[in-house]
């Protein structure tokens, strides 16, 4: 599969055909998701209407983690088989991931204020997403830190791999740390089992997010391909080898 998509010309043809479809699907899922999240699903008996923030907060947390594992996998492919296209897609996915992490953190604190009375809550999941944000930042900073882009890609890829091994360790240690310093009386966020009527908007929003991410990822890969091509043309001077 990788070899088929690896040729930029073929990649452009395939994605040009698929792009309108994915964009349409993304819009469809998002609109249905938002409507069902805001209007159709009942308010939670305990938290009232604030549970509606969950429909945005939880999918963006999923997306943040999903995109980081995408980056780690493509980096591993890029390193093992020396595949520059894999490094390119990892570099293209990073800004999307970091936007979803910021979304997750802001909606998390917006949800924490009415629920627990504080903007920032040292909840284990929220803190590990905060460190995931710094892992993304390190990846993007390392990508741009070198004059020679191929050097930057490789060391950022290695950092993505090491970071990926570390995400569960950070999650576990933050959980432990949380139970250590947890003041007893806090209401746990996911106490009540999620009611089935809340699941549908959650998955609709998650699907909407996934399709948006795919669309933006494809566009950003095209942008990076164009940048690479322009850089090569400037260096090799107009003579476009076959």
């Amino acid at each position: 599969m990788f070899n088929f998509l690896a040729n930029p010309a073929r990649f452009n043809q395939v994605t040009d055909r698929l792009m309108p479809a994915t964009a349409g699907l993304a819009g469809l899922f998002l609109s249905i998701g938002i409507i069902s999240a805001l209007i159709i699903s009942p308010p939670d008996y305990q938290q009232g209407d604030t549970v509606r923030i969950m429909y945005v907060h939880v999918p963006s947390a999923w997306m943040a983690l999903f995109i980081y594992s995408f980056i780690a996998i493509t980096s591993a492919i890029g390193l093992i088989w020396r595949h520059p296209f894999a490094h390119l897609s990892a570099q293209a996915a990073a800004p999307i991931g970091i936007t979803f992490t910021i979304l997750c953190l802001t909606t998390g604190s917006l949800w924490g204020k009415p629920m627990w009375g504080a903007w920032w809550v040292w909840d284990a999941r929220l803190t590990s997403v905060l460190f995931l944000f710094f892992l993304y930042l390190g990846f993007m900073a390392l990508n741009k830190a070198f004059d020679d882009p191929s050097r930057g890609e490789k060391s950022a890829a290695i950092l993505a791999l090491v970071g990926f091994i570390n995400v569960p360790v950070i999650k576990f240690s933050v959980d432990w740390w949380n139970t250590l310093h947890q003041p007893a009386s806090l209401l746990r966020a996911d106490g009540p089992a999620i009611h089935s009527s809340m699941l549908t908007p959650l998955f609709l929003m998650a699907l909407g997010f996934i399709f948006v991410a795919v669309c933006v990822l494809v566009t950003r890969i095209k942008v990076l391909l164009l940048k690479r091509r322009i850089r090569l043309m400037r260096i090799n001077g107009g003579k476009l080898r076959s």
Binding site: F131, F134, L135, G138, V162, N166, V169, F172
Partner: peptide, 10 residues
């Protein structure tokens, strides 16, 4: 520091 500190949190 930006790269290594998140990894040293545990």
């Amino acid at each position: 520091a930006l790269i290594v500190l998140p990894l040293l949190v545990p």
